[in-house]
């Protein structure tokens, strides 16, 4: 295709060229969609395999070929999970820890985020950057001293050990601050004129306006706590106080020579709450991750 600088000459195309271009376009598009479909299958297959294998007969649980659609599902695998490990108790523990940390972080993060965004006081910027800097610190660099502190407080091997150290959150503070900054100042001025005090302005005016941010934080934190493995592994050694990931790891050990269907039944059950949370709040989950990335 040649075009001069002075005038636009529409390219003359023969029918053959048009057909070729069309095919090329179509072909590359279909090829792309096909590759994407392959990726999608790879990403979803382990879920499908987990659910279908969790329903297979114990005798054939680990035999190939994999059976993707189980015609005679065996629900006894699910019952077995509860017989092998105190799974009911562990589900309860996971819920207690996840919900306590979600509620706690919503409180600490919305208070701190509001202070950084909307209240003026000496040293605000310095404190903000100090808090942000701690986001770089990996969990592993602090876990040993935290373990020492928790043990000294007599909280080792209690659920408190999983809850208390997780309450302060630099990321949550950052997230809430960003949302509070997005609320126009006019709201505050209007409230002052109406005679509201600072606490009322925070609780009645600003907090209701950032409910989406609270949802974002709640989702991310719930997901993270529900799936956490490292901290429970270190702080808890009583199976009755395990959270689900530790329980599953135990179950895998018990069933090393038994039926993997039982283990996969446990995995399937562990997924139910996070999947439900995802279905209702995927918008918030995606938004939260993007918010984190915006500052890059």
């Amino acid at each position: 295709m040649e075009s001069t600088a002075t005038q636009f000459v529409p390219p003359r195309r023969s029918v053959a060229v048009t057909v070729r271009d069309f095919l090329q376009y179509r072909f590359s598009r279909w090829f792309l969609l096909l590759v994407t479909a392959c990726f999608a299958v790879i990403f979803v297959a382990p879920f499908a395999w987990t659910v279908s294998t969790s329903l297979r007969q114990p005798m054939e649980s680990f035999s190939v070929p994999p059976q993707w659609i189980v015609l005679n599902p065996d629900w006894s695998n699910y019952v077995q999970v509860f017989e092998r490990i105190p799974f009911f108790r562990q589900i309860l523990n996971s819920f207690i820890v996840a919900i306590a940390v979600v509620v706690g972080q919503l409180c600490t993060a919305s208070l701190a985020g509001y202070a950084f965004a909307r209240l003026e006081f000496p040293g605000r910027n310095l404190l903000f950057w100090l808090v942000m800097a701690t986001m770089m610190i990996p969990l592993q660099a602090t876990i040993i001293p935290v373990f020492v502190i928790i043990s000294r407080l007599g909280l080792a091997n209690t659920l408190w050990a999983l809850i208390i150290p997780a309450l302060p959150t630099a990321f949550g503070t950052f997230l809430m601050r960003q949302y509070f900054l997005g609320v126009p100042k006019d709201f505050e001025e209007a409230a002052v004129i109406d005679g509201a005090n600072q606490l009322q302005i925070f609780a009645r005016v600003y907090l209701p306006l950032v409910t989406p941010a609270l949802a974002v934080l709640a989702m991310l934190v719930f997901n993270g706590m529900w799936n956490d493995f490292f901290r429970p592994l270190i702080f808890i050694n009583d199976p009755y106080l395990f959270t689900i990931p530790l329980g599953l790891n135990d179950l895998k050990g018990y069933m090393a020579t038994g039926s993997i269907s039982v283990v996969l039944a446990g995995v399937t059950m562990s997924l139910i709450p996070v999947v439900i949370v995802y279905i209702f709040g995927q918008r918030y989950l995606i938004e939260g991750i993007m918010m984190g990335g915006v500052k890059g």
């Binding site: 990403f43 997901n223 799936n227 990931p245 599953l248 995995v267 989950l285």
Partner: peptide, 15 residues
């Protein structure tokens, strides 16, 4: 593509 994010590292390692 997002679904795996829901699974814990422990469950992923097992599966």
């Amino acid at each position: 593509f997002l679904l795996p994010m829901l699974m814990s590292g422990a469950a992923t390692a097992i599966v």
